[in-house]
Simulated assay, not measured.
Amino acid sequence: MASKGSGVKPSLQHGRQASPTPRTRSGPSPMGPVIDRPPLPRRTNPLLRAKLELPTTTTSQSTAGRIPPRGLTILGVSVLCISTYCGYLYTSYRREVAASRNLQVPEDVTDRFNASARNYDAEVDLGEKFMRLGRRRRELVRMARGDVLEVSCGTGRNMPFYLLGERWGVDDQGKAERQGCRSVTFVDLSPQMVEVAREKFRKCFPEGFERVAFWAGDAREVVPSSVPRGLPPPKTEEKEKEKDESQGSAEWSLSKPYFDTVVQTMGLCSTPDPVGLLRHLGKITEPTKGRILLLEHGRSYYGWVNSILDNLAVAHANRHGCWWNRDIGRIVEASGLEVVEVKRYHLGTTWKVILRPKPPSTDTEKRAEEK
């Protein structure tokens, strides 16, 4: 039905009312003036609008965080390489464990170093660089003062870090102190190792240093007052027996019964009697200010690491002359020396230990020490 006076008939198209077409009236309307309005926009469901807009935002976010195909390829190859290497390590570990069960290795394996002396540095260089042991060696050796004895010197891996010649310096507290080494005596059980150390000393200190000695023998027999005549010289070729200033003068000797500093790095693992050695070193170290500086490797904090060390100990000792599963803490405790400082690295397998002689305070302790 049409409205009165409008003259406009409603039209239906598919059941919906057609949008009104704005027009201008020429005459007055009984219902008031007619106002022209723009057409209303088609209504949109707000939920539907949000749903339609969501994929655009999600797509942009997912594109920003997506790993490119090249990155996926590199990641896949890396995972494959790591898994393959881990499998190789596990297979090698099982093979070494099986081989260790059939080996009969004596407790004294120092003879292994005689055969490996010339190639020893090449064998251990990579491992020590990876573990940054050169830094640990430097820190330890720079603490050496006065008359120094290095036990288990090996091929002289500590050689570059020594400060030869005494001088006045300043300590960490700003106090003046004597620094540097008045003399250095290198001792090792392997004559071949001692020869390599002697050659390395010439290269490190071409200008020479008189108060240095190299001897092959058991450190438990070293007596300061007899250095350098206390131990037989290592077996060498005839031309090497000639006097060389860089090897040290045979005329000097220590007039006092003690060393000011004793250094040993990675030696307790290859010594037949580590407790007896430490006890002897305590007797020949200056009792008030003397120090015994150790850098050793042994048992870890963790049981699973110790299990690996134990399972491979026999094979490792047979190949490298080193019992790497010894308990350094128990060895130090059994020696009766006083512990100044202990630090551990690499899951607790690397030990930095500073000791000093522990003067007996009672007759009971004296008797225990004598035993």
Rank of each mutant, 00 (worst) to 15 (best):
S116I: 04
P22S: 03
S19D: 13
V170F: 02
L312Q: 11
T261Q: 07
E199G: 13
G180N: 10
R367L: 12
K343R: 14
L277Q: 08
A250I: 12
W215I: 04
T261L: 03
S83D: 05
G248I: 15
Y90D: 00
G329Q: 10
E238L: 11
V194G: 03
F205I: 15
R37F: 02
A197G: 05
Y85G: 00
F186Y: 14
G267N: 09
R330C: 07
M1D: 08
D147I: 09
T261H: 08
Q104F: 06
K129W: 08
W252Q: 11
T110Q: 15
A368G: 02
P68H: 10
E107D: 02
C86D: 02
V77H: 10
D121M: 07
A219W: 13
S116Q: 07
R42K: 10
A313R: 10
S183G: 04
E365M: 05
A219H: 05
H316M: 03
R326Y: 05
V187C: 06
P357L: 03
K283D: 09
V212I: 15
S26R: 06
L103D: 02
Y162V: 13
L293N: 09
I82P: 03
P234F: 11
A213P: 00
R138A: 05
H316W: 14
I354T: 09
E177L: 12
L12A: 07
V109F: 05
L268E: 06
G329A: 15
S255C: 07
A313N: 15
A117M: 00
L294I: 07
L347C: 11
R319D: 04
K51V: 01
V196A: 02
C181I: 04
A213V: 09
G127H: 13
D108G: 06
R279A: 06
G165Y: 06
G336R: 02
D218E: 02
K200W: 02
P359E: 14
K4D: 13
